[in-house]
Amino acid sequence: MPGQPCRGTVHRLNGQTICFTGRVLVDGEWRVRTHCAERAAQQGATPKTDFSRKVTLVVYGDLASKVVTDDRRTYSSTLVDAEAERRHGRHVCVVDADGFSALLRGRPAPCLELRRARTGRVRPVAAAAPEARILGGPLRLRRTGRRAHVDLTLDLSRLDEATAAHETTVGALIEHLSRQGVEACTNAAGAPEFDAGWSLGEDIFVAEVKSLTGAREDQQIRLGIGQILDYAHQLRSTCPSAAIRPVLVLERRPSAVRWTALADSVCLRLTWAPEFAGI
């Protein structure tokens, strides 16, 4: 519920009342506040130009890595006001540019702590977590749609088919795990953005899902292998005590049998819909 403690993670933009301290670096490109507000509104947020008691989420923009002084400039007073609201018992979430980019992609983002110095300066800092987390909340399907036919060199209809096939495979995986009493999860805030994760006993499985519709099969499989092995390597570095099991999930059985042998050679589980053998 907006205004209540987030327990360290902002899960979605939908339902948030949002304001920005300035332009924001979104996926490597600087975007002005109006553009960011439009993007947030598309995700179900309500943008505000100034901070008020209705605001539940502040996006910390172009002052990143700088100390904010308690003056009356709008972009600097926003964090001061947010910190004051927190002290009075109303939690206002604060995310940085990376967090906002993640939320735009439907991924969770860490909520930043606010530190006030004796001089009245306020600065956002990453909240200290007791331990690194891997799995986030329950995995949900994303909406897909078909674009209108227009004269573009890229065949967007085939792109939509691939996206729909991806989400269909994700949905089938969720149902397959559910029948075994296992809940499919998203990635935790700060963890690599794998497509699905779940735990069995002491093992944590992280999966990349690849559709084979409208794309070269070998190219998709090579991409998926590289991605999931990279995610597993990152997680083993940050969570050395966790037993990480990488999984590549395909839309269907691959045409070439060699991929199974390759996966076995790098300790990767390879499976595909609809049976999902081995998981």
Rank of each mutant, 00 (worst) to 15 (best):
T271Q: 07
Y75H: 13
L235Q: 01
W272M: 13
I221D: 08
F194V: 07
R23H: 10
R31N: 12
A172I: 06
G99I: 00
T9N: 01
R245F: 06
T260G: 11
I18T: 05
T238P: 04
G61P: 03
G28D: 12
C36W: 03
V257Q: 15
G106N: 11
V170R: 09
I18C: 00
P124Y: 08
L104C: 05
A102S: 07
G224W: 09
D151S: 13
A243L: 06
P110H: 07
A215K: 10
R53L: 02
L79G: 02
E175Y: 02
L270C: 01
G181I: 03
G201D: 04
V68S: 05
R123T: 08
T9L: 07
V95S: 00
H91M: 03
R236L: 01
C239G: 00
V150W: 09
H11S: 05
V68T: 13
R123E: 04
A117H: 13
A41Q: 10
L114E: 00
A132C: 06
L152Q: 10
V26T: 14
R12W: 03
N14F: 03
V68H: 08
T169G: 07
V80S: 09
A188L: 00
R121N: 15
S101A: 14
H176F: 10
R23I: 01
H91W: 10
Q4K: 11
W30V: 12
S76K: 08
R121C: 14
A109K: 00
Y231V: 11
A162T: 09
P138T: 10
A45R: 06
E29T: 14
Y231P: 02
D195L: 05
G28A: 13
R87L: 10
L177W: 02
G44E: 04
S255G: 13
A207V: 04
R90L: 09
A64E: 08
R258E: 13
L139E: 10
R140P: 00
